[in-house]
Structures are given as structure tokens and as C-alpha cells.
Design a protein around this nucleic acid. Structure first.
Lengths: 140, 140
DNA sequence: TTAAAAGAAGATATTTTTGTCTTTTAATGA
DNA sequence: TCATTAAAAGACAAAAATATCTTCTTTTAA
């Protein structure tokens, strides 16, 4: 479904959201906490930062964190930023022409479920999700 | 969602199922009809053939076709053969430990999505799907 | 002024996708 | 019967995409 890049992005963002009241988290901390390749993670965070989806501060005691605005974004925003819209809209069978009028055999079913997931990802903010994650002690 | 390999496999199998009453279809015909890389397709068909999901005959006038038994299989079988079970059961966030008891934040929603699709793929045979495809003139 | 951090560019490695060539099998025509 | 030929099967090579690592630069708090 999602690329590895995107999976790391989701996990990093949720981690930051959960620990947003603590000190800023550096790449080292994130990589260790998420058990992810440090430099790969750094690149992903740079991309998210460039698009205003996470906040960063340079210098000693710097690091990444989720600001007010960042917490109001959604995981859909993260996913669209990293993997692009095709994860949600591209044809599951890989057909270049596939639409409601001219559907592939899996169009209806596949879209029903993808759109269900997309809706969920879109109508809950990252901040709200972080609360759930903390309350229920979910994995990251 | 599915690998390209798997997408070609699905399309090839449905094409064969639709044209199963005609002469056998060779790799050349399939590659042209599906607009797919010929040799890649050949390799995929070999794998499906080895697992008994498509039938083949060597030599002149040979080619691939869907026998009785093949038509009773499902697209789920094809997908499991090519991409393996993780497309349906692997964690969307890429966590090694992620289950009903110890879920990731997207576990419930993502699984609803995937299991719905899996159910659909499992409870309709390839032969039945081929009938739909023909009747409704769907893309392949 | 120094050191800790992110930012940036690019190198390497791994995986996935695609292509080439040889071998095997089976039908067909001489 | 037997040579020819059309097709799949199989081994391997190349290209493209994805993921990971290295190195250097810039920023900034202490």
C-alpha cells in the first residue's frame, strides 16, 4: 500500500505529535525510537519540513517538533506529500485509463475501501490521532 | 497496493479467462493485448503455470489458456501466488509487531479496507469475473 | 568560538522491472 | 521417419526505481 518512505513518515510524525510537549526530538532519537535508518529518516523529515508538515530548529538543542499548525494537518497530507495522490486514486490493476465510466473489473470494490481509509485519514487531525495513540498505548 | 508483477498477472489471467474458448493465447498476443512487456509477462505466466493457476502447451499452436480448474480459482489465489500474503495481512505502517491485540494506529481501518477487498477477490471465481468483464465490456 | 543540530547533494546498495539468449517440447510437412 | 519450426521454459544480464549511507555545509544556542 504505502512505500517504506511513507511508513517512516507516518510513524515519525505520530511520534513527534505524541512527544510534542517534551524537548525537540532529533534524528538520532527518532531513528532509535522508531528503529529506522537514521539518514533515510533525516531525508524524509527534510521533505516534510520543506512542505511545512513538521517544524524544525537548527543548532544545539534543535530538532524536530509538531507546531500548532502541524498538529492540525492530517495523515492524508503526509501521505500525499510523500507518496502522491495515486495511492488513493491510481488503478489497482495498473491501467492508465480507468475511471467511473470506463472502470477496471476491481474499480468499484477497490475504491470503496480505499476511499474509506482516505476518509478516516482525512477527518482526524494528527493531534487527535496522537491523543488516541497515547490513551490506548498504540505501537509506532 | 499490488506490485506491477501482480497487476500484469491479474490482467493476463482475466484476459485468458475471457478468451478461453478461442485458440490458446501466446505471450505475443497477451503482451500486445495488455500492452505489457513481453518477457516480463512470460516470466509471470511461467510462475502461474508452475503453481497450476494457468495451463500451458508447448510447441506450435501452443500457448496459455485457463482450464476448468483454473477458472474455478480466484484472483486472491493469483495475488497470493505473486505478491504473497503480506499484501493482505502486513502492517500498513510497516511495523513488525502489529496485531489485533497490539495494533498500530491504522490497524482497524486499514484492515477493514483490505479485508473487504480480499473478501471480494476470494468469493468470486475467475470464471465468474470473466463473465462480468465480457458482459460489461470492462477494461483489462 | 565551538559544538550540536538540520540541510543539501550525491554515492552506494537493494529490489523490482525489463530484456537477451539458449534449451526443451510438440506439431507439421516432406 | 525425420527435419523444421513455433511455442513455452529457464538462466542470466541490464535498466530503473527505491531505499540506505557518506560527506559536507549552514545555522545557532551555549
Amino acid at each position: 500500500m504505502f512505500s517504506k518512505t511513507c511508513q517512516y513518515a507516518i510513524r515519525a510524525v505520530l511520534y513527534l505529535a505524541v512527544h510534542t510537549s517534551d524537548k525537540n526530538a532529533g534524528v538520532n532519537e527518532l531513528a532509535e525510537a522508531l528503529n529506522a535508518p537514521k539518514h533515510f529518516l533525516a531525508k524524509i523529515l527534510q521533505q516534510l519540513s520543506k512542505h511545512g508538515l513538521v517544524s524544525s530548529i537548527k543548532g544545539p538543542n534543535g530538532g524536530f517538533f509538531m507546531g500548532e499548525k502541524n498538529l492540525k494537518a492530517t495523515l492524508e497530507d503526509i501521505i500525499l506529500c510523500i507518496d502522491g495522490p495515486d495511492v488513493f486514486t491510481g488503478c489497482v490493476m495498473g491501467l492508465p485509463q480507468c475511471s467511473g465510466e470506463n472502470p477496471c473489473p476491481l474499480h468499484v470494490q477497490a475504491n470503496a475501501y480505499r476511499q474509506g481509509l482516505q476518509f478516516h485519514l482525512k477527518y482526524q487531525s494528527i493531534g487527535e490521532m496522537a491523543v488516541m495513540v497515547e490513551r490506548q498505548g498504540l505501537n509506532l
